[in-house]
């Protein structure tokens, strides 16, 4: 039980645990004793779960499914007849929306890769140096920025490096440096978005990768040293291969997180910068041409098509390493 729950907690994000074989009805997934005594009544147990399933169906599956469905529907403005079409998706892949997809992918890729690398190094620095109290401070702070950042992050940066930000002014007043023209930095453009996104991407990486780093047994390093390995050889032959799937998975997670983020970008650019999530908002708020009502749904479909497979891969990678790190 303890081993399993530890493994479970460090493998965030595994919907189906290895032991949760659908065929093993008689055994609990955590390997505890079969509940033979309750067997007779079990056939009715699913009834108790119906509120949950109904809720999920009504408030999650229905809206999400509807989006994916209406991405392929179009109402003819003249006749009022609704029919299947690929034109929404096709429009969503062209023109300004193509730019939006491209921008979102670029932003997600850059902040995902940089965030993963910096976050990995930072997590290592934290894991290998701090005491318990500081670790707790840092880990909760990271959790705040990664999970609850959103809008406030935008304002932190606006206040610091925005048009009338503190640093912007200080540089201009004292050094005659203009962030925009001299340093080619624009908080409200892609460079600014990258800078701000990293402010939650790096903490996210720290959170996700810390359990993996802590799971590296000191014995592995000692055993390697014992067999004659230098520190570098240990990392190259032992540490890196163990961490690789985790790091890759975490990078995918960061990519998806950057790709899906809405609040920070909206607050920072007032919804003006072409990114898919912001464009979806613009479209469904009615700022579009007639006959393109379902364009937002098509954009949403594109997001889902990009994000879901990556998250599934992330899952599989996480599950793979869980058994090594317990």
């Amino acid at each position: 039980m303890t081993a399993q729950s530890r493994a479970g907690s460090s493998s965030e994000w595994s919907p189906a645990r290895p032991t949760a074989d659908p065929g093993q009805v008689h055994e609990l997934a955590d390997g505890s004793a079969p509940i033979v005594t309750l067997k007779r009544r079990r056939s009715y147990a699913w009834l108790g779960l119906t509120p949950f399933f109904l809720y999920i169906a009504a408030f999650f599956i229905l809206p999400t499914g509807t989006v994916l469905f209406s991405a392929f529907r179009k109402t003819d403005a003249g006749t009022g007849v609704t029919s299947f079409t690929g034109s929404n998706v096709s429009s969503a892949l062209h023109g300004v929306y193509f730019t939006g997809i491209k921008n979102s992918l670029t932003l997600a890729l850059i902040t995902g890769v940089v965030g993963a690398l910096v976050g990995l190094v930072l997590a290592w620095a934290i894991v290998s140096s701090t005491g318990n109290v500081l670790t707790r401070f840092v880990s909760t702070a990271a959790a705040v920025l990664a999970n609850f950042g959103g809008v406030p992050l935008a304002f932190l940066f606006i206040a610091t490096v925005g048009n009338s930000g503190l640093l912007t002014k200080a540089l201009a007043d004292h050094f005659h440096i203009n962030l925009n023209s001299d340093l080619h930095f624009d908080l409200y453009g892609i460079t600014g978005l990258e800078l701000v996104y990293l402010y939650f991407q790096i903490p996210l990486m720290v959170l996700v990768i810390t359990p993996a780093l802590e799971g590296l047994k000191p014995q592995w390093q000692e055993a390697a040293a014992n067999l004659g390995a230098t520190r570098w050889q240990y990392w190259r032959h032992v540490g890196a291969p163990i961490l690789a799937p985790n790091v890759l998975g975490a990078a995918l997670l960061l990519f998806c997180s950057g790709f899906s983020a809405y609040a920070t970008a909206d607050a920072l650019t007032s919804g003006a910068f072409p990114l898919i999530p912001l464009q979806i908002h613009a479209v469904i708020s009615g700022n579009v041409l007639a006959g393109m009502e379902n364009l937002g749904d098509a954009l949403a479909l594109i997001m889902v098509v990009i994000v879901v497979p990556l998250m599934v891969i992330y899952q599989l990678l996480q599950r793979r390493t869980t058994r090594w790190l317990r």
């Binding site: 047994k217 055993a223 004659g228």
Partner: peptide, 17 residues
């Protein structure tokens, strides 16, 4: 890593990969 000693640890220390 320069001592040429072989060690067996209490907890299994095999490289999992």
């Amino acid at each position: 890593n320069k001592r040429d000693m072989g060690m067996v640890f209490q907890s299994y220390s095999l490289f999992p990969t």
